[in-house]
Design a protein around this nucleic acid. Structure first.
Lengths: 185, 185
DNA sequence: GGGGATGTTTACAGATCAGTATACCTGCGA
DNA sequence: TCGCAGGTATACTGATCTGTAAACATCCCC
């Protein structure tokens, strides 16, 4: 990607996430990235393609953050709930909810690339939970992974409320993992 | 509200929810409700006001459904997780996620009425969980209520994924209530 | 030194946006 | 019978939307 292309994506990310995709026009993105609209269209061809690029970039950054958190876990049981630690960091600078859920809200057409990207992101996290649960020796990895994903998405969705939902979700997630890994009594 | 006003709100609800608020223009709403744009503006004054009316109406319908489910519960413990039963019914005809979360995604301005309505809806459900948990004799109603709300919102958010997340969430919610109401052993 | 990739500048097309203006119709209650 | 609320019909404003046209500048690599 060219330097101008990178600036465009950076501006698009900031504007799309904070103001909404439909509400932000390509003229505004061009202006914020110090670039001509012609250059924007030479690089991305259409607004839809730029939206897809924006979401893909966010997805990659998020996955990197999660992988780092997972790798930083001391025990396999800790690694299972590491994505919740990543979410805590992520939420400090991303206070407008999940960019993918938001994108689906604005782009109802299921054939839009945003739908595939968003679904893949959630399914990636689900599979990660499943693998980590298996590694940690949890008895029902698939069920646990679904529960953890629900808790994760619930924590993101309730982010704007005055609730401290993320610590509660993290605690509950740890308890579920603990119940699976610790011996029954 | 006049007959024309009701038709306008009905058309707005269907279009806003399924296609997105920003993506739907007032002309389209007027056309779908068999009404002139002049009538629409005589009734609601602005698109923002119509959006607020749409969300308020949805909120009332949702609360009625939840209250009915709560009242249908046989035991206090069953009543606590009754909103999950309501969600199951609701999801059959509302497959595009939470209208309030979606509205916040499209309308970033915190002073927009939609923000107040959405926050009130979630806080209403939180308080309902808290009251029901208290009635059922759960030891930590506030904590449990937060957990149940997270599970609820998580189930809504993961609705488009091929996951069966709602049954899992409901089961987990029941287990949490059970752990609180049943005697420790 | 030529040529292609990367940009810029200005202007424009065609559509759609929220909201308004003006004039008219109709049914109902005082 | 009068008046008014509710509604229709059509046209319009000014702004904004995505996307394109055409001509020109710069830089780097072959």
């Amino acid at each position: 990607m060219t330097p101008a292309g990178r600036r465009i994506v950076a501006a698009a990310e900031e504007l799309f996430y904070n103001r909404g995709i439909t509400a932000v026009g390509v003229d505004l993105i061009a202006e914020h990235s110090g670039v001509t609209k012609r250059t924007l269209y030479n690089q991305f061809g259409s607004k839809d393609h730029l939206v897809a690029t924006y979401l893909t970039g966010r997805d990659q950054r998020w996955r990197s953050l999660v992988r780092a958190a997972v790798d930083a876990g001391d025990t396999p049981a800790e690694a299972v709930t590491a994505p919740f630690e990543a979410l805590r960091t992520w939420s400090e600078t991303n206070t407008r909810g999940c960019a993918f859920i938001n994108a689906l809200a604005e782009l109802p057409d299921p054939s839009h690339p945003a739908h595939r990207i968003a679904a893949n992101q959630k399914l990636w996290l689900l599979n990660l939970f499943k693998e980590l649960a298996t590694t940690a020796g949890c008895p029902h990895p698939a069920t646990l992974a679904t529960q953890l994903l629900v808790l994760h998405e619930g924590a993101v969705a309730t982010q704007p409320l005055p609730l401290d939902s993320l610590p509660e979700s993290t605690d509950l997630a740890r308890a579920l993992v603990q119940a699976g890994t610790s011996p029954r009594h």
